[in-house]
Design a protein around this nucleic acid. Structure first.
Lengths: 351, 351
DNA sequence: CCGGATAAAGAGAACGTTCTCTCTCATCAA
DNA sequence: TTGATGAGAGAGAACGTTCTCTTTATCCGG
């Protein structure tokens, strides 16, 4: 048994110091309740002097609101997610919510960590960049913690998710590549078991069919990493029918693929091979990559997520279903500019 | 006032269901205390069926141990820190500690967020990649929360910190650049107010003096970003005396600088200009960068940090002072290989 | 001058645990 | 048989808050 740390100053100490009752002092710290303005000021001033601050744990016990939001995360190596995590955390902090982080790396340790998280009675759990096992999801349900999937559309019907509209974005990218003159397209896929990969692929292939093109070649990278993109592109480009344009399931893959095209095959991008990604991570805008991509609407996605969490903390039931927000096509130097007249079928949601 | 969520199942419910006292059920869940093995199994089985799990908040109230560790973070855009955060969080999870995240972005909102964190009575606060205001540090002291600086060596005497030995690492890099034949060296600095920048600069300049070289040129980037590195290198290389080797305060700066050298001046790296960084982020190993750098000993740093936190949770006083762990020189393609005989003064701590 | 509002403050229960005592009862040596 | 022993279980306080209820002080119309 670990020994106890020195006791911190409590509301009782403060009340005794001020010669007031505990109830009065407590009233000074939260909005409801009737207290004279002068008294409140006295209490707060003295609290500041003594360095007293209400114990959030004790408060949470009785209010049954912890103001804790769990964030479950894997794949922080993909530069897209640090950006998301930063913005999400900041936005939650802004409304007085605290983030408890669970890193769900490779093995099945997710469940243990999630269970630990749930024991802190988080008001919401935001799952970033990963899906949960059935057991884990069930544990959340049993604990009464609503789940919000961010950037993943889970298969379950009554789950709640915020994602970029991957299919529409991928279709827009198909349009752009075709408008640049490409006829032989290819798709470089990431982790096959992710909704992001599946939706981008489906949206892309479908749009290619609409354009009357042959089915794009496919290069499975298996993971959303630079190395996987490099290797997959190497295999693809060594094939007999080299594509003219390559759409990658995300930016990191695209950057890896581009490097493979340049180094291993001496190809010029975009003249010999147009390359495009998805996400618009910061790196995509660097001059050495200058990557055409589809920007995910992170601010909007974060805003939606935070507002749902915030409203749930106020008692509102979380919405069901998957909300798809439109991304933006960002044309840079790795694809050819549109040459055809804009006669391709109109497509919504690109702004 | 937000309405109360539906009540979760408590230890009382479980005790009533089992026909046992609350005390007996409680004993089944923690190691101390005397309980028959059969009883414990019965309790745990039924708890599993009913989905009961002890409320960590209530437990923390009485044990005075929250098993919460605060992690204060800025600059998650620098790819070095996601890696650190991931490993740190995983390691803490492994020993049953939970991470509460505070993002301290630009403005003075750090203090508010930190105060919110402190109200959850974290057992430790790990400050990553940033320093705290005096007020914030004082608030931690008053709250009895020990502070651990990670990758920052604070000026205060009695602070506790784990860092890479920046000075020794920078000196090793100076040796390497000199061994490659360079005589005109330069240093590209990041945020001037950070200990990492100051120590790397000092170690580098000092070692250059030991080699009898003229004082290196200095290019202030002002921030640890790609864009800042690009711009600073552009200014530096436009000057009259172009350096032969450029040591950058971190990898992101180096990658930006390298791109500026290639694009803006058509320089070949390393023949016309050798470039080196610090950190060894994943990107440094990519073939398009292939950056010589000094690898920070993240696993060792994390291990030390976690062991301190873990021991503090067991009641041990946190150590004072700054622990400097040696990094590793990683030679890649952006610097010339050693040409001189290894006659330079010996330098410790490079393994 | 009185009775009833109303504002302000106090007393004590409650939240869901763990901790400290106390009690019961089987075991066992003498 | 008896008393000491100890394992196992129960009762109730405690943690630091907020909530509900009650009490006290103040004001005002009639």
């Amino acid at each position: 048994m670990p020994p106890r740390p020195p006791p911190r100053i409590t509301i009782k100490d403060l009340a005794r110091d001020l010669g007031m009752s505990v109830a009065t002092v407590a009233r000074a710290f939260h909005s409801g309740g009737t207290i004279a303005e002068a008294t409140r000021r006295t209490v707060l001033r003295r609290a500041g002097e003594l360095g007293y601050q209400p114990n959030a744990l004790a408060r949470s016990m009785i209010t049954r609101h912890t103001r804790i939001v769990g964030v479950v995360l894997s794949d922080l190596e993909n530069p897209f997610y640090p950006q998301v995590l930063t913005r999400l955390t900041e936005a939650l902090q802004q409304v007085g919510l605290n983030v408890m982080l669970v890193v769900a790396e490779p093995s099945g340790s997710v469940d243990a960590a999630l269970r630990l998280l749930l024991s802190y009675q988080p008001e919401y759990a935001i799952v970033l960049a990963t899906t949960l096992t059935t057991d884990a999801a069930e544990a959340c349900r049993a604990a009464g913690t609503p789940l919000l999937f961010f950037n993943r559309a889970p298969a379950e019907e009554n789950a709640c998710a915020v994602v970029c509209d991957n299919a529409v974005g991928a279709a827009a990218m198909a349009d752009h590549l075709v408008a640049g003159g490409a006829r032989r397209l290819a798709f470089l896929s990431g982790r096959p078991d992710t909704s992001t990969n599946a939706e981008r692929r489906a949206g892309f292939l479908e749009r290619c069919a609409v354009h009357g093109l042959p089915a794009p070649q496919e290069a499975p990278a298996g993971a959303f990493t630079y190395a996987a993109g490099y290797a997959a592109a190497q295999r693809l480009l060594a094939g007999p029918e080299r594509p003219e344009a390559l759409f990658c399931a995300n930016d990191i893959l695209a950057i890896g693929a581009m490097q493979a095209a340049r180094r291993e095959f001496g190809l010029r991008v975009p003249q010999d091979l147009a390359i495009a990604g998805f996400d618009d991570i910061a790196m995509a805008a660097w001059p050495d990559h200058d990557l055409t991509t589809l920007r995910q609407p992170i601010p909007a996605m974060v805003e939606v997520a935070v507002s749902w969490v915030h409203r749930a903390a106020a008692g509102e039931a979380p919405p069901k279903g998957t909300l798809r927000l439109p991304g933006t096509l960002v044309v840079r130097g790795t694809t050819l500019p549109d040459t055809t007249s804009p006669s391709t079928p109109a497509l919504e949601n690109q702004a």
